[in-house]
């Protein structure tokens, strides 16, 4: 790990001031990903600006949603009674990620900005376009069992590893940003970029811009939402495929549906094609299967991760069927 300066700041204003003043600074949340990457020399910041003193509050919004401070820990968010009853998909996604120890450290802001677990990204002896644009990608013909089948490019097939972000994508969360130019908001689906030719550019954040909060809009159907994570171990492993899902029925018609996928996308993957194909349609096996296929025809699998197309298909169908059954049974999750 290279030597660096360290500064703890009291609020976002100070953080941004400090970032503008420093050269090659990084904001430090719980450190669970950044410290690891610094040890691997993948990240070599000259300065760390500790933003864990930023808001740790979870508050009600006027619209009936929640606004979550960027420094709220993953554990605190998953344990919040309002999140557990109104947005169980979010609590369950967080709880299925990492370990209790890491969830106690990791912050909401940091979780969103964690970087891929691609082995070739981590190994500085390997070629990686994300680490070094133009260097090439050793994952394409290497080990890519954990890699993406959606949103990939010839430059990069790395997955975004967050579980929490997948739930947030399904919930239409809004990301509150603050930078030298002031405040703005992005939809969660706009925060992360697909790799294209610049896999090194992972988000729409501008230099020095900081995530200050995440807002959950009110969403009654989310009370019957769920998160299913398929992985190689029974716990403490990254997703091969994960599904965040919720369904609202009107009789036997799918009135509304929210779906997002983890483990298969280069970013937290909102399955908009499935949603579009299901809205207003009868809740039958045939419509579900056709809708799922509409998304997965976009998949660009490689030999080592081709199984994910089938795995995602089966998991999506199983989860949609369950949500529909739950909705029929009067809304018990």
């Amino acid at each position: 790990m290279n030597a660096f300066d360290y500064q703890q700041v009291a609020d976002s204003e100070q953080a941004i001031e400090q970032a503008v003043r420093s050269r090659r600074a990084k904001y430090l949340g719980g450190g669970t990903n950044l410290v690891d990457l610094m040890r691997e020399t993948v990240e070599r910041p000259q300065a760390l600006i500790d933003v864990t003193r930023l808001s740790r509050d979870i508050d009600e919004t006027a619209e009936g949603g929640l606004i979550i401070g960027a420094a709220v820990t993953n554990s605190a968010l998953a344990g919040d009674a309002r999140v557990r009853s109104r947005y169980p998909v979010l609590a369950r996604a967080i709880l299925s990620g990492a370990s209790a120890q890491i969830r106690n450290m990791a912050t909401v802001g940091g979780n969103l900005l964690q970087r891929t677990r691609c082995a070739y990204f981590y190994d500085v002896a390997a070629r990686c376009n994300k680490r070094e644009p133009g260097a090439g990608c050793d994952a394409l013909e290497g080990f890519h069992r954990y890699h993406a089948i959606l949103g990939t490019s010839p430059s990069c097939i790395a997955t975004h590893p967050s579980d929490m972000a997948v739930a947030l994508a399904a919930l239409d969360a809004r990301i509150h940003l603050r930078g030298p130019e002031g405040e703005r908001q992005l939809a969660i689906t706009e925060l992360h970029r697909e790799p294209g030719e610049r896999p090194d550019l992972e988000t729409e954040l501008q230099p020095e811009e900081l995530i200050v909060a995440v807002e959950l809009p009110p969403l009654p159907m989310a009370a019957r939402s769920n998160y299913r994570k398929v992985r190689d171990r029974a716990s403490y492993a990254f997703a091969l495929v994960s599904v965040a899902s919720m369904v609202e029925l009107d009789g036997e018609t799918i009135q509304d549906v929210r779906l997002a996928l983890g483990g298969v996308g280069t970013k937290p993957w909102r399955a908009l094609r499935v949603e579009a194909a299901l809205r207003g349609q009868p809740a039958t096996e045939a419509t579900i299967a056709a809708a799922v296929d509409a998304e997965l025809t976009e998949a660009r699998p490689l030999p080592g991760n081709a199984f994910k197309v089938e795995l995602a298909r089966r998991t999506l169908i199983a989860e949609l069927s369950r949500r529909i059954a739950d909705a029929r049974n009067g809304g018990e999750a």
């Binding site: 677990r117 082995a119 070739y120 981590y122 190994d123 002896a125 390997a126 050793d138 013909e141 290497g142 080990f143 190689d232 171990r233 029974a234 716990s235 403490y236 492993a237």
Partner: peptide, 24 residues
């Protein structure tokens, strides 16, 4: 995971080489 192109172990970590955890 031994990369046949480079002869390099590509999962030299307990995060990427899975051993059973309590839940398994």
């Amino acid at each position: 995971l031994f990369d046949p192109r480079s002869g390099r172990v590509m999962n030299p970590s307990l995060a990427d080489y899975h051993v059973p955890v309590q839940m398994d």
